[in-house]
C-alpha cells in the first residue's frame, strides 16, 4: 500500500529549526557530554535519499499492537490507571500525515521498565510489556490504550527523577521526517525539573510535548484520555519549481 501525500508530494522539506530542538550538548544531561558531535552539521539539501522513506502497511499490525493493557497480559491485566492516548500526526502545514507508523514504549505504573539494565526498585508488572505501535488513518489519527506510566529515578544527578512519559517513534512520508520524542502529562510538576526536558530551549517548545487531559474522550468508569498531537517537518509545494530529471 502506498501512502504518498499525493497533493504535495515531491517538494523538499522545510529546514529543521535547530534552535527549537534540544542541542546535542546539554551538560545537565550528563550522557550527552561525550555523545554530542562538536563540529557543525554539514547542511545537505534534500536529495532523493532523504525525500524517500519506507512504507509500513496495516497488514503488519497485530490486533493488540495498540493495546498495551492486553498485549502482554499473562495472568490478568496490568496494575495502574487505564488511559487512552490519541491524537493526530500532522506536518508543519497542518496537513494530516496518513499511513505513518507510530511506535511507543514506556515504564509500568510503578515507573519500572521491563529491561535488564533497569535498576529501580519498583516492581516489574508481570502483565505489562510496555511497547506498542499503530499506523495513522486517512486523517492522520492514531490511538492506543495503556496504563499511565509512573515517574522513576535515574542516575544523572544524585537524586534526579524523570517525569512520567511515553516514548514515541514516528515515521512520516520520508526519511527526512524521522523523529523520536517523548510525551509528558498535563499538570506534572516534574516536567520542569527534568534535565532531559530542560535541554529543550524554550518553554513554548516543551509545552508541545505535554499531552492534554481530554475529558471529552474519557470513558466513564473505564479509561481516562490524553490527547497528543505530533508534528513532523513540512515540505514545499512544488510551485514554479524547476525540477530536474530524477528528483
Amino acid at each position: 500500500m502506498r501512502n504518498d501525500n499525493s497533493s504535495h508530494q515531491g517538494g523538499s522539506f522545510y529546514q529543521r529549526d535547530r534552535s527549537w530542538h534540544p542541542p546535542a550538548f546539554t551538560p545537565d544531561y550528563k550522557t550527552s557530554v561525550l555523545r554530542s558531535p562538536k563540529y557543525a552539521l554539514l547542511s545537505l539539501g534534500n536529495t532523493l535519499s532523504e525525500m524517500t522513506g519506507p512504507v509500513f502497511g496495516h497488514a503488519m499490525l497485530g490486533p493488540l499492537d495498540n493495546d498495551l493493557i492486553l498485549n502482554y497480559a499473562q495472568t490478568g491485566e496490568p496494575i495502574g490507571p487505564r488511559i487512552i492516548v490519541h491524537g493526530q500526526v500532522l506536518d508543519e502545514d497542518a496537513r494530516p500525515v496518513r499511513g505513518a507508523l507510530v511506535e511507543f514504549w514506556q515504564a509500568n505504573a510503578g515507573g519500572r521498565y521491563r529491561h535488564k539494565k533497569e535498576s529501580y526498585l519498583a516492581a516489574i508488572d508481570p502483565n505489562f510489556g510496555g511497547c506498542g505501535r499503530t499506523i495513522t488513518d486517512e486523517e492522520g489519527r492514531y490511538w492506543f490504550r495503556t496504563i499511565k506510566p509512573g515517574p522513576y529515578p535515574w542516575p544523572n544527578g544524585v537524586n534526579d527523577w524523570r517525569p512520567a512519559h511515553i516514548h514515541f517513534s514516528v515515521f512520516g512520508h520520508a526519511f527526512a521526517q524521522r523523529l523520536i520524542t517523548q510525551m509528558y502529562f498535563e499538570g506534572d510538576p516534574m516536567i520542569w525539573q527534568c534535565p532531559i526536558v530542560m535541554g529543550i530551549p524554550s518553554r513554548e517548545a516543551v509545552e508541545r510535548l505535554v499531552a492534554a487531559l481530554d475529558r471529552e474522550n474519557t470513558l466513564p468508569m473505564d479509561t481516562m484520555a490524553y490527547k497528543f498531537d505530533i508534528v513532523l517537518r513540512g515540505r514545499r509545494s512544488t510551485l514554479f519549481e524547476n525540477r530536474m530529471e530524477g528528483n
Binding site: W20, A94, Y113, H167, T181, I196, L209, G234
Partner: peptide
C-alpha cells in the same frame, strides 16, 4: 505553520 515536535532522546530503553 506549526512547529515540528521537539526531539527527545530515545533513552536507554
Amino acid at each position: 505553520r506549526l512547529k515540528e515536535s521537539p526531539s527527545q532522546t530515545a533513552g536507554p530503553y
